[in-house]
């Protein structure tokens, strides 16, 4: 029994069908529990007032925004090296989810920044990096949509994902160099979990678990759709040939 067995689309479809209901239930449980806990049952932080409640969506979304790209990088590599279709399709399925997470992280960050920093947007390294990540997601998705041949699209987007990862990393450091963090003081250290007291930390953990589960569930659902869409394409081509 090895991981590669799931590269077989049929095997993948069967297993994901079994896993999905469990995952969905877990996702709903974790997300509702975490968000409700965070929203209703946590105290206000000394310096932040009730805005501290925003971190229960901001931090998990930001985490998933980066992890989604990492997952795309790994699956793209697997596609390039071992040519498993499910892997390429999973990368495609993850991109819109990652895009949404990036958008959520950006928007909630802006809303939080207004009362805390006095501005919706500052060209802070972290914010800027996320904006650039957003652009990378857009380009990646647009390339998938533009190419008709699914195998060529998988190849080209994988190459783009590899090169894009290197440049995204470069941009991260370039941006740091460009503007050495106006806001690296106490305000942002809220992001670092060791500085957050347990009352905030525990619901945050539940929320992070919820977002991870949500991501996995959505990616599985979307990958199943992509596998089906691929089969539809194959059947249509076969009909045309006949």
């Amino acid at each position: 029994m090895s991981l590669w067995e799931y590269a077989n689309p049929q095997k993948f479809m069967r297993t994901s069908q079994m896993v999905l209901p469990v995952l969905t239930v877990l996702t709903v449980l974790c997300l509702t529990a975490g968000l409700l806990w965070g929203f209703f049952l946590t105290p206000e932080a000394v310096n932040f007032g009730s805005t501290v409640k925003i971190i229960y969506i901001h931090v998990p979304a930001a985490l998933m925004a980066i992890n989604a790209w990492l997952m795309m990088l790994v699956t793209s590599l697997i596609w390039l090296v071992r040519r498993h279709h499910v892997s390429a399709l999973a990368a495609r399925a993850a991109a819109p989810v990652g895009l949404t997470m990036t958008l959520i992280a950006l928007i909630t960050g802006a809303i939080w920044g207004q009362p805390m920093w006095g501005t919706y947007w500052a060209w802070d390294p972290r914010l800027t990096s996320f904006l650039i990540l957003f652009l990378f997601y857009l380009g990646y998705i647009a390339l998938w949509e533009a190419i008709e041949n699914p195998d060529a699209a998988a190849d080209l987007t994988s190459v783009l994902c590899l090169v894009g990862s290197v440049f995204a990393l470069l941009s991260r450091y370039a941006v740091n160099f460009w503007n050495q963090g106006l806001h690296q003081g106490a305000s942002l250290s809220l992001d670092k979990e060791e500085n957050v007291a347990d009352v905030f930390y525990l619901p945050l953990l539940v929320c992070i678990a919820g977002f991870v589960l949500l991501f996995i569930t959505l990616v599985l659902l979307r990958t199943r759709t992509e596998v089906r869409a691929r089969r539809v394409r194959a059947l249509i081509t076969r009909e045309r040939m006949a």
Binding site: G49, T51, K53, I54, I57, I107, I111, W112, Q114
Partner: peptide
């Protein structure tokens, strides 16, 4: 006083 900020970020999310 931050009700609008918190509610809108939860809402948008």
């Amino acid at each position: 006083k931050y009700a609008a900020a918190v509610l809108s970020s939860y809402g948008i999310t």
